[in-house]
Design a binder for these strands. Structure first.
Lengths: 210, 210
DNA sequence: GGAGTGATGTCACGGTGTGACATCACGGTA
DNA sequence: TACCGTGATGTCACACCGTGACATCACTCC
């Protein structure tokens, strides 16, 4: 047995199990599904992850955040898409497409996404946190659009409206039982719907000023 | 002294002060402005309102809700506007106008609305709750629109997009220093902006199907 | 071999929110 | 006049959330 072997052996028996963060996330999702968010305590989650209370809060700032750990990375990635893409002549379209073309099933299979949504929908506190993430996404998009030269008056409308459109499509996408619906097609539908909506009103296009 | 007089005297010295709810709301707003949301405890709020901890939670389900007590009434009132108004041929316009024409300054003078917004914006937990109220508003609007005969595929888009437009206008309205800007005019601007945005994209209007 | 690092545990503590029960002015009723 | 709800409040105990301070100890580097 060379020293190298010993080292390898040691690596395999560290003082603590590795991947506590992942174990905590998995344990939390399981417990939330089994018995609901309110009825599972952080101590319980930590116990199932073979870790203590305190460690949970070192990985996640609060109990809800354990379900939204990806959100920051996701936001950063989508913002990068906006910043790196071709010149923006159609801000609303850019926002919607960046969202719709993202590889959501790469995050988790659609069934898992559905379950996650069910868990969130079942609890007001989690819904609350979900909305915050959407809001943060919108703010980041506004900033990115402006940096790409979109008018400061237009960017907030494009970002917020675009996100709402996408979310509506995403809902339908998850609800689609067959799993054959395409997110891009769904958002295109909604863009068309919005087009007719925006034109229905009395003389809304081509305002004199601005 | 007639019996009536005694009664009146007794009415003026009830066992406890009346209007605890209002006192709690006022105390909370004051303290949040003075020292921030996180740095004021419920015990502190209750003390300033000459009441206990426990009484606070009998009036408000949690610490944040003390700032959003009106939200339910507001939502109900606006939904009534949608339900009682004339036939809906322009759902997006209806949503935006119902919101823009509401008497916001009747709720509180604009300065107070600004301060309330500042308090909310200064704290993530309050922002979170604010977003929930917006979400509830959107859901209620969708239901109301559908009840008024708007297509089920169209209603969510109209409600969500309309609310986002209004919120953008509301922000600008509060930011307007002079106080001369008109909410309806601001939302009309944004509707126009949206009109151009929806038309900028490639061949988005008049889709073949649906 | 010794010092530093980093992930974890342990403990104490203040704040949040709730259930159970006590208190007591008020209003009605016999 | 006496009695009995009722309803708003207080009191108390408690579980849970989240944090600061400090201890532990494998691992790494020098």
């Amino acid at each position: 047995m060379s020293r190298c072997d010993i080292k390898r052996y040691r690596r395999r028996v560290p003082r603590w199990e590795q991947g506590s963060g992942e174990r905590l996330r998995a344990a939390a999702l399981e417990l939330f599904r089994e018995q609901g968010f309110e009825d599972t305590s952080v101590v319980e989650i930590a116990r199932r992850a073979r870790v203590t209370n305190r460690t949970f809060f070192r990985y996640f700032p609060d109990k809800r955040e354990v379900l939204f750990a990806d959100a920051d990375d996701l936001r950063a990635a989508l913002v990068q898409e906006i910043l790196r893409g071709p010149e923006i002549t159609d801000p609303l379209g850019v926002v919607v497409r960046v969202l719709a073309r993202h590889d959501w099933e790469g995050l988790a299979p659609r069934g898992a996404l559905r379950e996650r949504r069910a868990v969130i929908a079942a609890n007001p506190e989690l819904l609350e946190r979900d909305l915050v993430k959407q809001h943060a996404m919108a703010s980041a998009f506004v900033e990115a659009l402006v940096r790409r030269g979109v008018d400061e008056g237009v960017a907030p409308v494009a970002a917020r409206v675009g996100i709402q459109l996408f979310l509506t499509a995403y809902e339908r996408w998850l609800d689609a039982a067959g799993g054959e619906e395409d997110l891009v097609a769904l958002t295109d539908d909604l863009l068309a719907t919005l087009g007719t909506l925006a034109l229905t009103g009395p003389a809304r296009v081509a305002p004199d000023a601005r």
